[in-house]
Design a protein around this nucleic acid. Structure first.
Length: 343
DNA sequence: TATTCGTGGTA
DNA sequence: TTACCAAGAAT
């Protein structure tokens, strides 16, 4: 089966977009004919596997602090990592700095407009390179994200394997950037993963999935892997008004982020293994549970008071922990500690 | 190609 | 409460 009159899809979708586009801070305001590549790039990276609702306030704060490539290229990487705290997938933040520095040092402060050149920049994969090329520079590019995959799978009643070719077949030469954003708005609000609103869809008459009577069957869902549970210990070591923080290794989970010290994350609770100091550790009554993409982590909290700030790391004022840029799992632990400390 | 990389919203 | 999953990239 295939979509009916595929040449009519792009004009219809663009007309729908002109009337229904979401207003988002990284989109050019109505009437403006220029889109800032820096803002397009930043938003696309922030939006990788991250919801619009989560990104919106972070995007605004980010562009206020680092308004362009030059500012970000000159930033302290530690400050950038802290500013990203809570957004997840922290390699994105490190790649943002790397990319801004490449733009500054090798491209004269401007993004290359060519999709293939964009694809070579740190943190830009097939999707993001195509999106920037189309949205920021008006070039025709085939932009394929999870929304586009789902929409074309339904339009053509495809199993998902031909997504790029099908997207290519309906992408127009003009307004490719608007077309990409229209596909994403459609996927986000109408052609949703569950319970699609077909009666509101401007492409319903073209949709083989709708005609089949079960559009939700496209694309087929993948089997999910079970999440193992790992156990660990978070160490809360105080000295005076401060608590001990460490910097996690650059690679791997929460790479490069400031953190509370932890021992190993293993199948059985590791107790006081790899404690940062020899001290009179006591156990907090609560257990911290945090779910990552591929495992669930159960953490016990051990606390102690040190006579002096001797253990290696950074001693951070407890009252200012909110400014430390801790990933969510450690922010949870800090909240639990402060709840008990304050009664 | 399959895994590893976070987090918060939603049903 | 659990499970799903959202504008993916790197290895």
């Amino acid at each position: 089966m295939s979509a009916k009159r595929p040449d009519d899809i792009a004009p219809k979708l663009l007309a729908w977009y002109d009337a229904n586009a979401r207003v988002l801070p990284w989109r050019a305001p109505p009437g403006a004919n220029a889109t800032d590549p820096y803002r397009v790039w930043l938003s696309e990276v922030m939006l990788q596997q991250t919801t619009v609702a989560a990104v919106r306030p972070r995007f605004e704060a980010w562009v206020a602090r680092w308004p362009d490539f030059a500012a970000l290229a000159a930033a302290d990487e530690a400050d950038v990592m802290s500013a990203w705290a809570g957004l997840g997938y922290y390699a994105r933040a490190r790649n943002l700095v790397a990319c801004a520095r490449v733009v500054a040092s090798e491209h004269g402060g401007r993004f290359p407009e060519d999709e293939a050149a964009l694809r070579r920049m740190p943190g830009l994969g097939d999707y993001t390179a195509a999106a920037i090329s189309a949205i920021a520079f008006g070039r025709r590019a085939v932009v394929v994200d999870a929304n586009v995959k789902r929409v074309v799978a339904r339009l053509f009643a495809d199993d998902g394997g031909q997504a790029r070719a099908l997207a290519d077949a309906i992408t127009p030469d003009a307004r490719a950037g608007d077309f990409a954003q229209a596909m994403m708005d459609l996927g986000s609000g109408i052609c949703t993963s569950r319970a699609p609103k077909c009666l509101l869809c401007p492409l319903r008459d073209h949709c083989a999935g709708y005609a089949s009577g079960d559009p939700e069957a496209y694309p087929p869902r993948k089997a999910k892997a079970a999440k193992p549970v790992r156990h660990g210990t978070i160490f809360w070591l105080e000295a005076g008004p401060c608590v001990l923080l460490v910097r996690r290794p650059a690679k791997g989970l929460l790479g490069g982020m400031r953190a509370l010290p932890t021992g190993p994350w293993v199948a059985e609770p590791p107790g006081l293994a790899e404690a940062p100091a020899d001290a009179a550790w006591g156990w907090h009554p609560e257990t911290i549970t945090h779910v990552f993409t591929h495992f669930r982590l159960e953490l016990r909290l051990a606390s102690a008071t040190a006579a002096a700030q001797e253990a290696g790391g950074e001693w951070w004022p407890v009252d200012a922990l909110d400014s430390a840029g801790l990933p969510t799992v450690f922010a949870k632990a800090a909240d639990a500690m402060r709840r008990v400390r304050c009664g």
